[in-house]
Design a binder for these strands. Structure first.
Lengths: 232, 232
DNA sequence: CGTTCATTTGAGTGAAGTCAAACCGAGTGG
DNA sequence: CCACTCGGTTTGACTTCACTCAAATGAACG
């Protein structure tokens, strides 16, 4: 809604999980995905805003960036949380149609969108990586849509925690989920209010399914029950 | 939930609007997008089901196909309506994770997913077409997510009608929107119940914003008011 | 230790859901 | 041609889950 004045280099759409598996990335030409300057962001700072020209694609290096759409009356839908390794700003549109905002101190690598495009036009393997990355984002978006459209507050929260847990599992294994974002970010992701998110977390605690430390760290006490609550 | 026994050739994810602009499609190699047998479907028949191996990609030739996810307790979220020219079944996963079901008699062209993949690996321009197509799907999915997560029943319905209208505008210009699907399909798309959809349509009629003929044809009487009601 | 920002908790309300019944063509067959 | 069925839609009465408004609590910081 404000800040983010110095929008150094804005770009497109967020790539999701496993975006560009880095193993196969170290290729002849496609190291355009590796170059690029690092930009540091503080919590709440924008990477780019809706309407900005999409000049860059960003890879998250550290922290979390929320992609969101804000309606004219202030209602806000978070579309996705981008974690380290994920890309944001991919897509075909000239301008951004979402805001991208760090939920905590973060670092992003800035990649030239036009350079990426030109290279992809010549290098099918890079183009396919982009394709796969966006496809993964699509799966994530649709999965969230199912939650928001059909599930209860409890189911949405449980599914959210299970999802976050499986992401983190890829790196450090777990039962512990860091929540590096505000309740309002979670609420806006799940199509709920902060009060409902808070009450639901409290209920999960009294049910002894999770434990919460400092409000930002969730310990899963009963994983089976949690996945059960997530429904389907 | 049943039928669709003869799943001739299942495949991946639905490509959205403007998928593969056909103008540039008539290329050297990429006519793999043009070949392929036609399959006829009756209303409610499945093109493929969740869990089917993703062997084919389909282009809608006629009619409308709904992509949806059905939860174990029967709740259903429609993810997208695919119209003629749209693709369904694109993506990177081995199996389908959604159902695809004709909402009315329809025709689809069946394209081999593996052939498409192999060709894309050699032909950057085809790979980029796939990338653009999936990107467009992503925009559509996220836009729907904003509706379902933040908007009221009235706003969702109005936005849905405006969206359908702009699709049809590309062909025959209008003010008239055909609804070649049941109320339940619309309800499941918007995360509402059929009763709420019905009541909301009735309200739009009494407000003289739209008129409905035979329940399947919407005449827009006050387009400005409708877009206003869609909010943002 | 007071200010600020985020979260939690409480009490009451409302938009959309549920359950149930009526309505409305489009077949179909007596 | 009419009676009946059948799937889909509309309308009505009531309920509920999540929202709103409001206040209390807690954590971080100067």
């Amino acid at each position: 809604m404000f800040s983010a004045t110095q929008v150094a280099e804005p770009t497109a759409r967020t790539i999701y999980r496993k975006s560009f598996d880095t193993a196969t990335t170290r290729h002849a030409t496609s190291d355009s995905l590796e170059r690029g300057t690092i930009r540091r962001l503080e919590a709440k700072e924008h990477v780019f805003c809706e309407g900005d020209p999409r000049t860059h694609v960003f890879r998250i290096e550290d922290g979390v960036v929320a992609l969101s759409k804000v309606l004219s009356d202030g209602r806000r839908q978070v579309i996705d949380f981008a974690y380290p390794g994920d890309y944001i700003g991919l897509g075909v549109l000239r301008d951004h149609i979402f805001d991208a905002q760090a939920t905590c101190p973060a670092k992003v690598r800035c990649l030239s969108a036009s350079a990426l495009e030109q290279e992809a036009a010549k290098d099918a393997s890079l183009a396919i990586k982009l394709y796969k990355a966006v496809s993964a984002e699509l799966v994530a978006a649709r999965s969230l849509l199912v939650s928001v459209g059909q599930r209860t507050a409890m189911e949405r929260l449980a599914a959210f925690l299970v999802n976050l847990n499986s992401r983190n599992n890829n790196t450090a294994n777990s039962g512990v989920i860091k929540l590096p974002m505000r309740r309002s970010d979670i609420a806006d992701l799940l199509g709920l209010t902060i009060e409902t998110v808070s009450r639901t977390i409290t209920k999960l605690r009294t049910m002894r399914v999770i434990d919460v430390v400092h409000g930002t760290e969730v310990h899963i006490l009963d994983f089976d029950r949690l996945t059960e609550l997530a429904g389907e």
